[in-house]
Amino acid sequence: MNVGIVVLAITGLLAIGLYALLVARNLIKVFVALQILVKGAMLAMLAAGQIAGKAQVGESMALTVIVADTIVAVVGLALAVQLRRHFGTLDVRAFSTLKR
Protein backbone atom coordinates (compact mmCIF):
# COMPACT_ATOMS: atom_id res chain seq x y z
CA MET A 1 0.00 0.00 0.00
CA ASN A 2 1.34 3.34 -0.98
CA VAL A 3 0.68 5.61 1.99
CA GLY A 4 1.29 8.72 -0.03
CA ILE A 5 -1.49 8.00 -2.50
CA VAL A 6 -3.94 7.15 0.27
CA VAL A 7 -3.15 10.35 2.20
CA LEU A 8 -3.53 12.31 -1.02
CA ALA A 9 -6.92 10.68 -1.64
CA ILE A 10 -8.08 11.43 1.91
CA THR A 11 -6.95 15.04 1.79
CA GLY A 12 -8.51 15.45 -1.66
CA LEU A 13 -11.88 14.04 -0.58
CA LEU A 14 -11.93 16.16 2.59
CA ALA A 15 -10.91 19.30 0.69
CA ILE A 16 -13.49 18.78 -2.06
CA GLY A 17 -16.19 18.05 0.50
CA LEU A 18 -15.38 21.11 2.61
CA TYR A 19 -15.11 23.39 -0.40
CA ALA A 20 -18.41 22.13 -1.77
CA LEU A 21 -20.08 22.66 1.62
CA LEU A 22 -18.66 26.16 1.67
CA VAL A 23 -20.06 27.20 -1.69
CA ALA A 24 -23.09 24.96 -2.28
CA ARG A 25 -26.46 26.66 -1.97
CA ASN A 26 -28.67 23.91 -3.24
CA LEU A 27 -29.63 21.56 -0.39
CA ILE A 28 -29.13 18.44 -2.55
CA LYS A 29 -25.62 19.62 -3.39
CA VAL A 30 -25.00 20.15 0.32
CA PHE A 31 -25.87 16.52 0.97
CA VAL A 32 -23.62 15.35 -1.84
CA ALA A 33 -20.80 17.43 -0.37
CA LEU A 34 -21.46 15.94 3.06
CA GLN A 35 -21.24 12.43 1.57
CA ILE A 36 -17.89 13.19 -0.06
CA LEU A 37 -16.59 14.59 3.23
CA VAL A 38 -17.67 11.52 5.18
CA LYS A 39 -16.13 9.19 2.60
CA GLY A 40 -12.84 10.97 3.15
CA ALA A 41 -13.13 10.47 6.90
CA MET A 42 -13.95 6.78 6.39
CA LEU A 43 -10.97 6.26 4.18
CA ALA A 44 -8.85 7.93 6.88
CA MET A 45 -10.14 5.42 9.46
CA LEU A 46 -9.35 2.47 7.23
CA ALA A 47 -5.87 3.80 6.52
CA ALA A 48 -5.22 4.52 10.18
CA GLY A 49 -6.29 0.97 11.05
CA GLN A 50 -3.92 -0.44 8.43
CA ILE A 51 -0.98 1.68 9.55
CA ALA A 52 -1.53 0.92 13.27
CA GLY A 53 -1.75 -2.81 12.49
CA LYS A 54 -5.31 -3.00 13.78
CA ALA A 55 -7.13 -3.28 10.46
CA GLN A 56 -10.27 -4.80 12.00
CA VAL A 57 -10.77 -1.83 14.35
CA GLY A 58 -10.59 0.63 11.47
CA GLU A 59 -12.91 -1.48 9.35
CA SER A 60 -15.54 -1.89 12.06
CA MET A 61 -15.44 1.87 12.72
CA ALA A 62 -15.88 2.51 9.01
CA LEU A 63 -18.82 0.09 8.88
CA THR A 64 -20.48 1.90 11.77
CA VAL A 65 -20.01 5.20 10.00
CA ILE A 66 -21.51 3.77 6.80
CA VAL A 67 -24.67 2.84 8.70
CA ALA A 68 -24.93 6.22 10.44
CA ASP A 69 -24.12 8.03 7.22
CA THR A 70 -26.86 6.22 5.33
CA ILE A 71 -29.42 7.18 7.95
CA VAL A 72 -28.26 10.80 7.78
CA ALA A 73 -28.63 10.78 4.00
CA VAL A 74 -32.11 9.24 4.11
CA VAL A 75 -33.44 11.58 6.79
CA GLY A 76 -31.77 14.56 5.15
CA LEU A 77 -33.27 13.84 1.73
CA ALA A 78 -36.69 13.32 3.27
CA LEU A 79 -36.31 16.71 4.96
CA ALA A 80 -35.27 18.20 1.66
CA VAL A 81 -38.50 17.01 0.05
CA GLN A 82 -40.55 18.58 2.86
CA LEU A 83 -38.56 21.84 2.72
CA ARG A 84 -39.07 22.05 -1.03
CA ARG A 85 -42.83 21.63 -0.56
CA HIS A 86 -42.93 24.21 2.22
CA PHE A 87 -40.64 26.93 0.85
CA GLY A 88 -40.89 26.16 -2.85
CA THR A 89 -37.11 26.27 -3.17
CA LEU A 90 -34.02 24.29 -2.17
CA ASP A 91 -31.82 27.36 -1.61
CA VAL A 92 -30.31 27.07 1.89
CA ARG A 93 -30.46 30.85 2.34
CA ALA A 94 -34.25 30.63 2.38
CA PHE A 95 -34.23 28.28 5.36
CA SER A 96 -32.76 30.64 7.97
CA THR A 97 -36.18 31.63 9.27
CA LEU A 98 -35.54 30.65 12.91
CA LYS A 99 -33.29 33.67 13.02
CA ARG A 100 -36.20 36.05 12.48
Binding site: L18, L21, L22, R25, V92, F95, S96, T97
Partner: peptide, 14 residues
Protein backbone atom coordinates in the same frame (compact mmCIF):
# COMPACT_ATOMS: atom_id res chain seq x y z
CA UNK B 1 -22.82 36.11 14.70
CA UNK B 2 -25.66 33.62 14.39
CA UNK B 3 -26.54 34.15 10.73
CA UNK B 4 -28.42 30.92 10.26
CA UNK B 5 -26.64 30.52 6.92
CA UNK B 6 -25.01 27.15 6.35
CA UNK B 7 -22.10 28.48 4.32
CA UNK B 8 -21.07 30.93 7.01
CA UNK B 9 -21.13 28.15 9.62
CA UNK B 10 -18.92 25.98 7.42
CA UNK B 11 -16.56 28.90 6.97
CA UNK B 12 -16.36 29.21 10.76
CA UNK B 13 -15.58 25.51 11.11
CA UNK B 14 -12.84 25.69 8.48
Amino acid sequence: LQTGLLNWNILGIV
